[in-house]
């Protein structure tokens, strides 16, 4: 707990929250633009449509946002050359856990803000009915799990490399892979990449009718492949956590 508190002291006045807020605001602006002026049919299925669009948007932006967050939390140690000093005061594993928890709290705040925003946006656009909170919480849980797995990967890279270019480029490549994986219809392939988790665990599908130019959203049944995709997210998170902690504790200060 003390180590976690110290993490927040370290980032005091570094505007980490503001940085993430600004990047989340870009997502919100995108939503405002993409969902603007819905017709009657779009209002009818607005709440479901949102759950279709958000994983796509997350898979483009979240890998880079996580790279930025991890880099902000780790770079302070590189610049101050503080590893050796910190490790005389605290166990290396505890330090790593504190950084993990600190990042997780930021992720939870981001998604809480996202949920609130989506509900407010839906009401302001007069979507029909009320949002199905069960579905929204399911979306939230899966997205947080995916984002957390990516954060663990980025944190490990940011802690290991002094040059933050490597983790940042990994984040950018992840964003690009996430975007490209949308166009691959091989679900197993999507699950294999940690950046494909958002798309692989989507539970809302869409039918595009080229004649009427109308998109119809529907709830997809969770197949065996779908369950496998869910499992992969937690597998990635576990792998990144264990490897990251192991590498960090063995790192030369």
């Amino acid at each position: 707990m003390k180590t976690l508190k110290m993490e927040f002291y370290k980032i005091k006045r570094r505007k980490t929250g503001l940085t993430l807020g600004a990047m989340t605001a870009v997502q919100f602006l995108w939503c405002v633009w993409a969902f603007r002026g819905p017709d009657e049919y779009e209002r009818l299925q607005g709440w479901l449509g949102t759950l279709y669009s958000m994983p796509l948007l997350n898979s483009i932006m979240m890998p880079t946002i996580m790279a930025v967050l991890a880099s902000r939390l780790a770079d302070i140690e590189h610049k101050g050359n503080t590893y050796k000093q910190l490790r005389t005061l605290r166990n290396a594993g505890t330090l790593f856990n504190a950084k993990v928890l600190c990042g997780l709290l930021f992720i939870l705040m981001m998604y809480a803000a996202q949920l609130l925003f989506l509900i407010l946006l839906g009401h302001s656009l007069h979507y029909e009915g009320r949002p199905d909170m069960g579905l929204y919480l399911r979306y939230l849980f899966l997205s947080i799990a995916c984002t957390f797995a990516l954060y663990l990967l980025q944190l490990t890279l940011s802690m290991l490399f002094f040059n933050q270019m490597i983790p940042l480029v990994t984040g950018l490549c992840g964003s690009m892979l996430g975007l490209i994986l949308m166009y691959l219809y091989n679900w197993n392939l999507r699950s294999l990449f940690p950046w494909g988790g958002y798309i692989a665990t989507m539970f809302v599908g869409a039918d595009w009718n080229p004649q009427t130019r109308i998109m119809t959203y529907y709830l997809m049944e969770t197949s065996e492949n779908g369950l496998l995709s869910h499992g992969f997210i937690f597998l990635w998170a576990a792998v990144f956590y264990i490897t990251g902690r192991w590498l960090f504790t063995r790192r030369e200060a």
């Binding site: 940085t19 990047m23 932006m61 880079t64 946002i65 790279a67 930025v68 880099s71 902000r72 770079d75 933050q164 270019m165 940042l168 950018l172 964003s175």
Partner: peptide
């Protein structure tokens, strides 16, 4: 920061 300008660029 190294990372923030990259985020701004994205």
């Amino acid at each position: 920061s190294f990372a923030l300008p990259v985020g701004i660029a994205l």
